[in-house]
Write a protein that binds this DNA or RNA. Structure first.
Lengths: 342, 342
DNA sequence: TTGTATGCGTTATCAC
DNA sequence: GTGATAACGCATACAA
């Protein structure tokens, strides 16, 4: 049986309500009793029961994290750790705790979210999945429950606060960079085409080629994993006119690409240039190191939690669209195209 | 204003307590009213307020995760993702949610834990840090609050349930493996000497050398990061009799080791053999792939949550010491020692 | 089998 | 300034 506010009240010879006011640091309470109560709390080792407090205050100081459905993929990709680190940092600054869903299927996750929301277990939600999935977001909008999305919502873009990169521009710039190295046969290896991020980057890639007046384009979709990259390369090198450069939508995939090319005896830089995304620590470690677009994953998480909390604490907070800057980091996996094509 | 149990009761023409019993699926309630109430819940879209339930039932169905203090290191190391995945899976099976600390210093984390515990926000805790830090564990033991440790406690080993590998044996076997390849100058690169896991592995390494009658031993400590590995190598190669083989306590460190050796023009396998720990996906990706001891990180997390829940749901549950099996996975970073020493 | 009454530990609205 | 008292939404002992 642990110490309650009543115990403290008795010990300090005051009413429970007075203790409550001391905890809330109410201005209309004498310094004298304030001290008296504080000492009592100290001596009894009192800590408020947050559950009871939540019940009456209707706030938990907890943020819910809605994990993507393909958990295995997520947990393997360093992207996840970095987002989490950003979320954690931000939540910590505002003294919010983090609670995450554990479900594996869309349905399970949906049920968990409903429980979190209706069960009043969290004050707001960060959605880590930008899948073309509307049930969840429309449910949350219907409930008028505070939430933000990391990535871009598929629909209702103007009605949802989200934190994203300008993936269109990022991919366009990456492609332009390869064009500036005189590459003309550039292929795109993306993640799942169901992900908005894939679509955005593909569009950026195509726009750059359009602008350069290049007709040839080639793209393959694969999982955000090493295996996905390997398979994609095999596919692309079967082409009649195989590419001399690749835009790869994720470092982990690029790792697979590197390895497969290595096995095929194709030298990176010389015969094939590669630009990937995320700039995870991996990118610096591969042989050769990867040219990669740093999308500031930490900031993605940090801003997500920060803006969610803003929204929770002020329901009038306007809808926002937060774009985290990106930056192309050139390393040796990309080099000028020297060989004359055909 | 959301739907409460009273609304459902009115709607179904029963007492609130009856609704409560239907939710709990009490056997002494007629099928008829059960259905009536269920329909009412359905039609009103009722979901119980879990906070209110927690207040009276004194249970939250939430597990707390106590993160290590060096958060940056943790988040960068794939170990973390895998443990989390195991924890998540296990928690999900028993319908527990996961809540994590966000603090950065020991003191902050300690305060968060006290709040979680006294605030009755979680039913139990998983400690992810096996630091030589006693304040937290002795506090939890004093409170008689359910917790388990991933790794080995520094003290009170017989009074705490923990989930660990047999790190002594694992390191001993790894060393014996190198000995069987005729290496005689084997050095050990460990993580922080404050970590029990480092101590255990170092002891195993030394034991193997003892058994083989080899006097020469050499060890260096570094951070569980790539940089740590790089610095350690530089250090070791300054020796008068530099090693021909290395036991490295973490894949990420090993990656740094590989890279630094590459820069120094020392060929892996030929001139230097390496065995590391964790067998993260990294290990398969490096050039050459790493021989690594798979410690089953997922299981570490899975068993931790599982046994914590057992403990929560049955206070009589005995203290346990759960050893997760390990396995040496041989790849090409290790090879027989051919050159004659000296 | 079901309804009534009470309490879980807080905060908030009154009075005084 | 401080003390009763009533919620918050639920579970449960006790009645009926």
């Amino acid at each position: 049986m642990s110490i309650t506010i009543k115990d403290v009240a008795k010990y300090a010879n005051v009413a429970p309500s007075t203790v409550s006011r001391v905890i809330a640091d109410s201005p209309r309470i004498s310094e004298e009793t304030k001290n008296k109560v504080k000492i009592a709390m100290e001596e009894l080792g009192y800590h408020p029961n947050l559950i009871a407090r939540s019940l009456v205050s209707r706030a938990t100081n907890v943020l819910g994290l809605v994990m993507p459905e393909s958990v295995d993929v997520v947990f393997q990709n360093p992207f996840f750790s970095s987002v989490l680190q950003g979320l954690s940092e931000s939540a910590h600054e505002k003294t919010y705790a983090l609670q995450m869903t554990t479900g594996k299927t869309k349905d399970e996750i949906f049920q968990e979210v409903v429980e979190m929301v209706q069960g009043r277990r969290v004050d707001g939600l960060v959605l880590l999945n930008s899948y073309v999935e509307d049930r969840l977001t429309s449910y949350l909008m219907k409930c008028d429950f505070p939430f933000v999305i990391i990535g871009k919502p598929y629909r209702n873009e103007e009605r949802i606060t989200y934190i994203d990169n300008d993936n269109f521009r990022a991919a366009k710039e990456a492609t332009e960079y390869l064009l500036s190295l005189h590459h003309e046969r550039i292929a795109f290896i993306g993640g799942s085409p169901e992900l908005v991020v894939t679509v955005d980057r593909l569009n950026g890639y195509e726009k750059a080629l359009d602008n350069a007046g290049i007709k040839l384009r080639d793209s393959v979709y694969a999982a955000f994993l090493k295996k996905g990259g390997q398979e994609a390369v095999v596919e692309l090198l079967k082409r009649e006119e195989p590419p001399t450069a690749l835009i790869v939508s994720d470092d982990l995939m690029a790792l697979g690409v590197l390895q497969m090319l290595g096995e095929m005896g194709i030298s990176i830089g010389e015969e094939m240039s590669i630009v990937s995304f995320n700039n995870a620590f991996l990118a610096r470690m591969t042989q050769p190191p990867l040219t990669s677009v740093d999308i500031n994953i930490f900031s993605l998480g940090y801003e997500a939690a920060k803006n969610l909390i803003l929204k929770i604490e002020n329901p009038q907070e306007p809808i926002k669209r937060i774009i985290i800057p990106h930056q192309l980091v050139v390393r040796s996996s990309s080099a000028p195209q020297k060989l004359k094509n055909k």
